[in-house]
Design a protein around this nucleic acid. Sequence first.
DNA 1: TATGAATGAGACTTCATTCAT
DNA 2: AATGAATGAAGTCTCATTCAT
Lengths: 208, 208, 208, 208
Amino acid sequence: MSSPQPTRRKRANGVESRQRILDATVEIAGERGYDGTSIAAVSAKCGLPASSIYWHFKDKDDLIAAVIERSFEAWLSAVELPGDEGGTSLERVTAMAANVAKSLVDAPDFLRLGLMLALERRPAEPRGRTVFLQVRDITHRKIAEVAAALFPGLDEAAVDTLTTYAVAGADGLFVHREIKGDSVDLVAMFELHAQVVHDMAARMAAGK
Amino acid sequence: MSSPQPTRRKRANGVESRQRILDATVEIAGERGYDGTSIAAVSAKCGLPASSIYWHFKDKDDLIAAVIERSFEAWLSAVELPGDEGGTSLERVTAMAANVAKSLVDAPDFLRLGLMLALERRPAEPRGRTVFLQVRDITHRKIAEVAAALFPGLDEAAVDTLTTYAVAGADGLFVHREIKGDSVDLVAMFELHAQVVHDMAARMAAGK
Amino acid sequence: MSSPQPTRRKRANGVESRQRILDATVEIAGERGYDGTSIAAVSAKCGLPASSIYWHFKDKDDLIAAVIERSFEAWLSAVELPGDEGGTSLERVTAMAANVAKSLVDAPDFLRLGLMLALERRPAEPRGRTVFLQVRDITHRKIAEVAAALFPGLDEAAVDTLTTYAVAGADGLFVHREIKGDSVDLVAMFELHAQVVHDMAARMAAGK
Amino acid sequence: MSSPQPTRRKRANGVESRQRILDATVEIAGERGYDGTSIAAVSAKCGLPASSIYWHFKDKDDLIAAVIERSFEAWLSAVELPGDEGGTSLERVTAMAANVAKSLVDAPDFLRLGLMLALERRPAEPRGRTVFLQVRDITHRKIAEVAAALFPGLDEAAVDTLTTYAVAGADGLFVHREIKGDSVDLVAMFELHAQVVHDMAARMAAGK
DNA sequence: TATGAATGAGACTTCATTCAT
DNA sequence: AATGAATGAAGTCTCATTCAT
């Protein structure tokens, strides 16, 4: 009852505040993009005054970049294939695609914001854009490794084309769902895409 | 001599001013998105004062919507299949895809801006977004018609899935090129995509 | 009585607004220096909203520079020796000095602000500082011409030293009055200074 | 071994921290003036967090005042005439002037900041300004004493005028060097000034 | 057909300062 | 003896928009 430090925390909890700010920012930036994200809006959503946001982040650019970094890691750990062995290569590819689709349905902010940033062309490129493109490259490379492992017959150029096509399809289907809303069955679409890409890989690995 | 205007015209050419404003706006909005496009920036680029922009357009929303409309029409007439007869269905589909790819390389602003608008989620949806989604639907329907004509065996649902997949791939490949730059051969990628989609259609039309 | 456009001017008078802004700014900047001059304070003093100030001036730097320019011109025309002929060289020099002293008592803002700017050392030098130093150089040259005319025996280096010393003394006495207030008889001090400088010139022109 | 502090000291050296803060502040305030000196900038330059500055100084005003005090003392001990006997009165005056000039070249921050503060007119006068004007008065009195000793024939008013003129010239020449930079030989200028003032004193002491 | 000028709201950011630890 | 975190006020400047001419 007379507890010395019960609910009344308030002052000074850097780590938690930082999280609150980032949480608010993903939500807003994921919906409105870079320019549409105002510090005042973030401040209102997280409850901290604007000046406190600047204690944790150098400027808006830094904040958006931090958001991209954090939500990529979150997305990555959500995707992380739980069991990637077992089944035919088609089954495995399909399972992976379904997994990615699910993660994008659950947490679309990362990719939505990332694509908005990627499409922009501004004189002083936001750091968040750079970060997004970097993690995107990392992802591309990981997928390429999987493809190379599944289809040893493919040369490097073929693997790259295949990966590019796979990623582009994923992006496009994601955009489609963002536009059309929840009625779109993203998992089914990704599974279809997985099959198509798998066929393509098989044909490539065969003769050409 | 027989000019209807009395003394010097020179100033006062509504149509041309309107074009200049729209030209400036596509460029800026195509690069920076809705929020990133300021009336002041448009004014600076087209040379007309901000108040003149408001003489031609009700507000920013109206301006952006007009840009979308005009650049969609421009894009449409650039794409308009010059001769859609002749050749196998694969050849025709491939030619159409190459054609679209070329138009997107030449004038990417329309789709870039459109996708940016489409990805945003804001309380008061900009009219430009609505317009983009409408013309997108129109496009979808046109493609569906072509698909239905080429593969009479497909039912409506199959045609829709096929079209969705075709468009999504195109979007994704476009995004890929926007990110990676001129080194990406969009035409080749679109041709590959056309082939994949054609195979998919053929398989669908067959049994499943 | 029923005059169509009597007192009720208000909207849109660019020239007058510009003057009002400049008037307010000299007063504030003359008392508080560059950093101490806030746009909000200028806005409050001149009655125009801050955003209107930015219609007339690119930014704060531009505003301060404009102030320096205008008040230099005002000061110059206030100083402009009414009749510089007649009397001995000492009498003429003394009259000029008294004239300058009077102008500095009447309108000290220009020099006070200028000296404050001159003393500052900041990474991005304010344009106002540059302007002040330029007009200062012009003044220096004009004084040197007078000195050369009055004492034809002096070589260029001697004229320069003399002028520098004359200006430095004036600056120092001005600062003294700024510190000690109205009780200081600046005119008398300047006349004393004029005499000293005149002696110095005479001695220089003689042997060494 | 015999250190009174138990385990590691390292942190917690009040005196040194205070010095670091003051060192940083002279540098910044000497270059940017009162308003231009932000606690954040001082913090960045001295490496201590802003809150630590407030542990050592009540507020910004207090900090600036402390800087003025300390740098006046430093300047004073740098000037302190090493041997003020010997030679004619002219030689002695000249030597003193040269000494002062050297000190101002070596450490101009004190006077630069002081003059900036002195020129400002703000509702709530900073304590630093008051302190500067006080030490300035002290200096004035000391010089007056020297003058009275060297020229016993002068009455109080004459000594005051002489001192005022001497100080004003020094200020003005200092400002000149601050503007024109290292190329100005301040020592030579001060020696010239000393001679002029000496002549003036002699003439005053004679008849008038 | 246009535009110079104005304007309130709000953008990002820094300010001096406090307080609990 | 110090500091991480917070905060309200204020800083400069841009925003979309209006209105009289």
